[in-house]
Every structure is written in C-alpha cells, then in structure tokens.
Design a protein around this nucleic acid. Sequence first.
DNA 1: TTCATATCCTAGTTATATAGTAGGAATTAA
DNA 2: TTAATTCCTACTATATAACTAGGATATGAA
Lengths: 149, 149
Amino acid sequence: MILSTKGRYGLKMIFQLALSYEKGTMSLKDIANKLDLSDTYLEQLMSQLKKAGLVNSIRGAQGGYELSREPSLITVGEVIRPLEGSLAPSECVGGEETECSKADYCATRLIWEKIMVGIDNVIDGITLQDMINDYDKLNEKEKGDNKNG
Amino acid sequence: MILSTKGRYGLKMIFQLALSYEKGTMSLKDIANKLDLSDTYLEQLMSQLKKAGLVNSIRGAQGGYELSREPSLITVGEVIRPLEGSLAPSECVGGEETECSKADYCATRLIWEKIMVGIDNVIDGITLQDMINDYDKLNEKEKGDNKNG
DNA sequence: TTCATATCCTAGTTATATAGTAGGAATTAA
DNA sequence: TTAATTCCTACTATATAACTAGGATATGAA
C-alpha cells in the first residue's frame, strides 16, 4: 500500500465536492456519512486541502466546503501531494535538496527518478472532471447492466 | 517516500551482485561494507531475494551470494515486489481478491489502477543489465568530467 | 580435526508513522 | 439565543519500519 488513508480518503472526499460543484456547500458531516468515514479524521485532511487552496470553507450553521475552482482545473496530483507529502520512492529524488553525494553515479537513483516520473505523469494528467466523466460512464453502464440482467 | 528501506537497500544490494556477475560469489559483509549498511539487516532482505529465486547462496567459508541468472533476465520489479509486497496504491487494487463491493462504480479505484499500471510499466521494463549500462555510462561521463575539470 | 568464515533462522527491540479521538474556541444562519 | 458548523491543538493506541541479538548449520583451508 503505497498510499495511506490520507491520500485515499482525501481524494474520495474532494471527489464528493466535485460531484456537487456549483450546488452549494457540503458539510463535513454529510461527506463523512456518505463515505462512511470518521468526520473528525476527515476534518484534518480537509484542513490540508484548504491550506493547499483547493477548497473554500464557510463557517457556521449551513456552512460547509466547496471546490475553490472548477473540477477540470484540479488534478489528482494537486489533491494527493499535500496529503501524502512527496510521492518520491526515495529521499534522494524529488525533494528541494539533493543531499546525496553519490548522486552523480548512483544507478538506483535513476530508477527512483523513473518511477517518480511515471507516477507524476498519471496523477498530474487526471483532473477531477475526468473522474466525474468516468464515474458517469460507469453509472451509465451499471444502469444498462441492471436493465439487461 | 513510497518505498521503504527494504526495497531501496534490496535493489542496491542485488545491483552489487549484478556488477560482479560471473566473478564468483560475494559475501553479505562485503556488500554491506560497500554500501555502508547494516549487514544483519541486509541479511533479512537477501533471504527474501533467495526465496524469490533471484539469488543463489553458498554456505561456509569463502561462501556468499550470486545472481541465479544473468542480469538481463532480472527486472527491477522482480526485485522490489518480494521486498515491499504489493505496490498497489490502495487495498482495492492489485490483490488476489477484490473485496470492495463498490468496485463497479468507484471513481477513485480507477485512479489507483492507473497509478499501479504506471509504476508496473516502469519497474517491469528495466532489467539489472539496463542498470549496469546506465551505471557504466554515468561513470564514463564522470571520468570525462574529471579530465576536463 | 579444528577453526575462521559464511549462510540460515527465530526472536526480540526501538523509533517513527498511521489512524484515529477528544475537547473546546470561533463563527454564523435561523 | 441556539444549533450547526468550521477551526485548532493536543492526545492516544496500534502498526510498521528498521534494525539488533544470538545461536544453529555448513564448509574451505590450515
């Protein structure tokens, strides 16, 4: 399991906001109920997403959260990184500083870099809108299957 | 850091064996000294690699380890997986059993699958021989740099 | 035969990270 | 005023990571 519940729950959570984009705010309690997850835990994750500028919040009664911009402008990578930290496979790649003195001739370092690029290409290339489209397609198919079955 | 020291040290370790392929066995102590890592820790990792059939061992004095087949026939994925377990980003993908009842219409599941395929494509596409070639190239360049600098 | 050098194997141990809980302050619509 | 909500800090239990310890077993060389 290379991702913790932070990244996994976090993406599920913001996906709920994406589904209800421009339909008003959604409270954490509602999200937690819908996903059947602890609301106090999701609260911490949401606070990270807010810090990252991905969601707006409205306090007080009838308050809640909403996406700060449209789903097509938020990538999966933007959601996962603030929650999981770097998705680097090793400490010698992807950080601000490359401390390892052997970097110039390290063979494994090249591998870690390729893995990281592979992951980045996936998560930076998918937006929340893409997820919605896939979800709609799946549900459409699901309906059809039920009809035929 | 999506990989633990198991996968990271393990690959470094077997890479040493790849470098000395067909030059006799190499003891764990030598490998540990070369990499400046704990030999008792590496021992556990090596035992996994042996179970996975990647290395042969010779016990007793003058004994040690060697690759069980040539470097071009061992992929990075074959090395990392026995050490790290599944590289799935979530429990609902990559396992033998897909337990999640929501799999049919889960939008995040598609993301985890894509990430996993991305990683697999990288690590299953690189052999130890590729690593050696890259390493030789780096060292060649290093020498040149030193000459010119 | 003995001994130093190795692998092999099982169990600890310690430190860190994960996955939460708890409790209350601040804010706001009704 | 009150109920609903976000915001914030701190605490806790559990699991995992990253080793360490100690001894059994095997083997080449003196």
